[in-house]
């Protein structure tokens, strides 16, 4: 149960302002989800580099990570830390090895996201504080999704915050409550997927990743989810190049979309959108139930 904001930039000249806009939007949704918050920001691809967002309860450990990893991999890697998170940049060809090394030798670091463009930051705390700790307002990018969480059944922890990322450059946030996620999680586990939390949203994210791994497009995966996911949800999803929205067939959880020539914006409430440029002249509407909306470039 939560607040969601999302922004997809169409006009390149707005890309430097993505973080500032998204952080303003996130701030309006604090009371919908005061427990924890998180956001995904999609930046420009960096020539053959894969970014890994890591989280640690003991950020001091990030200091020596660059030296240790470079030594093990025999190649230089870059680590930029921000509060409890760090972005690790590695060349594409050694990414698989890097993941193994991280898993086997650095289990204290949690992998929050992996991809050419995505970075995810999420923590327990009041949403504006969380956004401030990671400097969201100064980030640039092509699209981004933010979330404020009021936990329903699963624990309030940093990994239980949204967005959830279960595939390269993919992420998902959710407002609502799924009613068949336990069975679905068991099925997905049987197929070999791993889970970090008991959160229903992680199941939805993993479900969509599983469909996309089987070759479906994001749109087709979302369509398929209408038959397989039960319960109440408004989802906002991000991919390497796009941004999608889906509400369940009952569609009670609030959702507002706004579109201008320069951007597409999502908010759980209109309040989240009021600070956006030229919002007065935007096309504003509520997404229809069981209808997939998607913008890509």
């Amino acid at each position: 149960m939560c607040g969601i904001v999302g922004l997809f930039i169409k006009d390149e000249s707005l890309e430097p302002n993505l973080g500032e806009m998204l952080s303003g939007m996130l701030g309006t949704m604090c009371d919908r989800g005061p427990d924890s918050a998180g956001f995904a920001v999609y930046g420009s691809p960096e020539n053959g580099v894969v970014k890994v967002t890591l989280q640690s309860a003991d950020p001091a450990q990030f200091n020596s990570l660059q030296t240790k990893l470079s030594k093990i991999l025999g190649r230089s890697v870059a680590v930029t830390s921000k509060d409890t998170h760090a972005i690790l940049r590695v060349d594409h060809d050694i990414f698989d090895t890097t993941r193994e090394v991280l898993r086997d030798q650095f289990p204290q670091f949690r992998v929050m996201a992996v991809g050419e463009r995505i970075e995810i930051y999420k923590e327990v705390g009041y949403p504006t504080d969380v956004a401030g700790r990671f400097g969201l307002a100064n980030m640039r990018g092509t699209h981004g999704i933010g979330h404020t969480r009021m936990a329903t059944e699963s624990a309030v922890t940093s990994i239980g915050a949204h967005p959830f990322s279960t595939g390269s450059d993919q992420c998902l946030v959710h407002n609502g409550s799924l009613s068949n996620h336990n069975n679905l999680r068991r099925e997905l586990k049987h197929e070999g997927r791993t889970f970090e939390t008991e959160n229903d949203t992680e199941v939805a994210a993993a479900y969509l990743s599983a469909q996309m791994d089987k070759g479906l497009s994001l749109g087709a995966s979302l369509e398929k989810s209408l038959g397989d996911l039960d319960g109440f949800y408004t989802f906002v999803v991000g991919t390497r190049d796009g941004f999608g929205v889906l509400r369940d067939p009952v569609a009670c959880k609030p959702a507002v979309l706004a579109e201008t020539d320069r951007y597409v914006a999502f908010g759980s409430e209109y309040r989240a959108l009021v600070g956006l440029p030229d919002i007065e002249s935007a096309r504003v509407w509520e997404p229809e139930p069981a209808t997939v909306y998607f913008w890509g470039r």
Partner: peptide
Amino acid sequence: SRHPDWTGPDDLE
């Protein structure tokens, strides 16, 4: 079985 004008704790608030 549900209230007509809100669903979930965030709306309840």
